[in-house]
């Protein structure tokens, strides 16, 4: 009970904070007015916070899904015996690519796709693939030799070995990569508002441009709560995966 209880609380509190903010912020006009009386519009109303949060989650969810499919696919391919000679190149791409700042990837996507959600999604996918790919390769590479030998000895075929030995043993690191990918995506999607994506970054960017600190604070609080919620949920899944299958 204690461990499960504490685990549940760890996911619950950021999510509760997010829900509370979503309900309370639109009604907190008087509070923000009292804090910053010089502002004419103390609460961001152009788009509802709920809609922005949903759009943010949608963008990050889609990008993470694509990143997982691509990262897992390439990672598995590069660790098969027939295509193993590609592994150093794949690893170099993953390592060098991660030194590229997310903002740079976002900025490069704009000339290719114009403004809006499209360049943000492309940047999120491109950048999100790298941690998943890196961790998939690392996870599969670290599967112990005896486990593989045992599978060979039991007459497992190539695919069965991948499915029943390698992937389950690598599931923990892979899940850590997915979590990292999603968290970086939440941050990059926020900056995506600067190139016209409709996310929780919109109040922040608009507030910064028009010197409206109230908007900035509202957006920042929501983004922070959202990031912590997503991280908590994925951390819980990661722990479950590590415990359940190792």
């Amino acid at each position: 009970m204690t461990i499960a209880g504490r685990g549940a609380w760890r996911i619950a509190w950021p999510c509760l904070a997010l829900a509370l903010l979503l309900i309370a912020l639109p009604r907190m006009g008087p509070v923000f007015h009292a804090w910053m009386p010089e502002l004419r519009a103390p609460v961001y109303t152009r788009t509802s916070f709920v809609a922005l949060t949903a759009a943010h989650i949608g963008l990050v969810g889609m990008a993470t899904l694509i990143a997982v499919v691509l990262g897992l696919g390439i990672g598995i391919l590069a660790t098969r015996p027939a295509t193993r000679s590609l592994l150093p190149t794949v690893r170099a791409v993953a390592v060098i690519g991660q030194t590229f700042p997310p903002v740079a990837v976002l900025a490069i996507a704009v000339p290719l796709l114009g403004f809006g959600a499209a360049p943000t999604l492309l940047a999120l996918c491109l950048y999100g693939v790298l941690p998943v790919l890196g961790q998939t390769v690392a996870g599969i590479e670290n599967v112990s030799r005896p486990a593989l030998d045992a599978a060979d000895g039991m007459g497992y075929g190539r695919w069965r070995k991948l499915w029943e030995v390698e992937l389950p043993l690598a599931a923990g690191p892979i899940m850590a990569g997915v979590r990292l990918s999603a968290i970086v995506s939440v941050g990059t999607a926020t900056i995506g508002s600067a190139v016209g994506a409709s996310t929780l970054g919109a109040p922040i960017i608009e507030g910064l441009v028009s010197n409206n600190t109230a908007y900035v604070v509202q957006g920042a609080l929501l983004v922070a709560a959202l990031a912590m919620s997503i991280d908590a949920v994925l951390a819980w899944i990661e722990r479950y995966v590590r415990r359940g299958l190792v």
Binding site: T190, G201, I204, V216, G219, A220, L221, A227, D231
Partner: peptide, 9 residues
């Protein structure tokens, strides 16, 4: 976990 732009803000 907090995005950089949010922490700045």
């Amino acid at each position: 976990t907090v995005p950089s732009i949010a922490l700045f803000a």
